[in-house]
Design a protein around this nucleic acid. Structure first.
Length: 462
RNA sequence: UCCUCAGUAGCUCAGUUGGUUAGAGCGGCGGACUGUUAAUCCGUAGGUCGAAGGUUCAAGUCCUUCCUGGGGAGCCA
């Protein structure tokens, strides 16, 4: 007999047929006459109830049906006479696939703190919340590929190991095969990286953007979606050392095309999750974050307001609102400022453009005013910035000028600069931190709870 | 890295101005119960009080250092 999943069975109306179910026991209730076994196989947030007449099964088997054990059940799918579920399985045969000692199995039927579950990350996916989170994580990843593929973008695999440490996006992890106990030295006593695997110093990537631009300037539109590494000693609910990032780059797109894409992309992802993960979202909305569904609706129902950084500073200064951090032209906006603009002033998502060049990266398109660049930040309620991007500087001389000002070594990025020498075009792109997006769409408040096995300072367990 | 709060049973926590043998709920185990819904009721076991050092007649409680975790800040996605 073919195994049916919980997802198939709980939605089925084809009753009184024989089915085969395999899964893990979540809870067990009952008395000496009848046992109610809640089984979950990860295909749904819901469990299916297996009903077993105690006298039909040997005690030696029923004793082993404990929380966490894996079982196979052959039985009849029937309409449930009890409240709380539509269908259940009247068990005909129960086989224990794998025992689970109830005295040592750490997951109980009562709720656990996320902090505790993080310590048992190898088992936490068996809990309701983490099952929901990781089903949504999958759906979001799939939706990202679907969106870009349907739009004619190419998925470009930018390198994970990079020799460039000029990207300026934070501290990097070194990649080496040198013997750390016995490092080769040159005449000056410096470490001799010519002896290293690549013949030079290499690191894990902090961004695929620069290589992504090379792809866009050949294939018209590309996106990257891969792991990214930051060796910063950041201990916050919003940072991990290894995370996933989505970075589209588009030739012939100016800043306005870029904003259009970002808005359409985010709305598509949210609609896709709402359509395909409704049960999981309902669960999270009820158990984790009561404002979740309203907030997702808020994004879908509103056109993103577009304005400039300079205008935003004016609004904040005139607001009469007391902020913890100062509001002044030239300073970066804090999350509290971004949230005020979105939640109080515009009451809709906001895209800010034209930031002071001093607080933005070297590759951003310089405006004619000489002091702002064509950056764009997409701001969401609750979290502030969710997407950061820009039109890129395509004029060789201007780009080099900026690199010199900011002490970015031109020699190392010769390949990046050559794209501005040979057939340069207007182009744009942006970056979306995948886990930051997942926090928004699941309502989870710690980034370590939206990635299966988080890497943070002093923690690389699992 | 800085600031701050916390660490007591498998989990979530209480524990008085330092004072006898460290408690509860849940979970586990045993029992009762004819369809349960985080079942209910009765009973029961379970502790290196994060680690090391110190003060004291006496430390879960006070002091020092360290470790781990939460929140905030910085860095940033």
């Amino acid at each position: 007999m073919v195994r049916s999943t919980v997802k198939e069975l709980i939605n089925s109306k084809d009753f009184d047929r024989d089915v085969l179910l395999k899964g893990w026991v979540r809870t067990r209730r009952g008395n000496n006459r009848v046992a109610f076994i809640a089984v979950n196989d990860g295909t749904s947030i819901h469990n299916i109830q297996v009903v077993a007449d105690m006298e039909s099964f040997p005690e030696s088997v029923m004793k082993r049906v404990t929380t966490g054990s894996s079982i196979a059940v052959k039985g009849k799918l029937v309409q449930s006479p009890g409240k709380g579920q539509n269908v259940e399985i009247q068990a005909g045969k129960i086989e224990i696939l794998g025992d689970s000692n109830p005295e040592t199995y750490p997951l109980q039927k009562k709720g656990h703190s996320f902090e505790f579950l993080r310590e048992i990350a190898h088992l936490r996916m068996r809990s309701n919340t983490f099952g929901a989170v990781f089903r949504i994580r999958h759906a979001a990843a799939f939706a990202i590929h679907k969106y870009f593929n349907d739009k004619g973008f190419y998925y470009l695999h930018t390198p994970i190991i990079t020799a460039s440490d000029a990207e300026g996006a934070g501290a990097m992890f070194r990649v080496t095969t040198l013997d750390l106990e016995n490092l080769p030295r040159d005449e000056q006593g410096q470490i001799d990286y010519q002896e290293d695997f690549f013949g030079r110093s290499t690191n894990l990537t902090v961004s695929g953007q620069l290589e992504g631009e090379l792809g866009a300037l050949a294939l018209s539109a590309i996106y990257t979606f891969g792991p990214t590494f930051r060796a910063e000693n950041s201990n916050t609910p919003r940072h991990v050392a290894e995370f996933w990032m989505i970075e589209p780059e588009m030739a012939f797109y100016d800043i306005h095309d870029n904003m259009d894409l970002a808005e359409e992309f985010l709305k598509f992802l949210i609609s896709y999750i709402l359509e395909n993960c409704r049960d999981d979202l309902d669960f999270l909305n009820q158990m984790v974050d009561k404002g979740l569904l309203d907030r997702l609706g808020f994004i879908l129902e509103n056109r993103f307001e577009r304005t400039t950084y300079t205008e935003a500073i004016e609004i904040l200064r005139k607001s009469g609102q007391k902020f913890e951090f100062p509001v002044e032209w030239g300073l970066d906006l804090q999350a509290e400022h971004e949230r005020y603009l979105v939640e109080k002033h515009y009451k809709r998502p906001v895209i800010l453009t034209d930031y002071p060049n001093e607080i933005k990266a070297f590759y951003m398109k310089q405006n004619d005013d000489g002091r702002t660049v064509r950056a764009m930040d997409v701001l969401f309620p609750q979290i502030g910035e969710i997407i950061g991007g820009s039109q890129r500087e395509e004029i060789y001389e201007k780009l080099v000028g900026r690199m010199q000002q900011m002490n970015i070594p031109e020699k190392e990025l010769w390949w990046y600069l050559e794209t501005r020498k040979f057939g340069t075009v207007v182009h744009s792109g942006f970056g979306l931190g995948f886990e930051r997006f997942l926090m928004f769409i699941t309502g989870m408040s710690n980034i370590r709870d939206v990635i299966p096995f988080p890497r943070t300072p002093k923690n690389a367990e699992f």
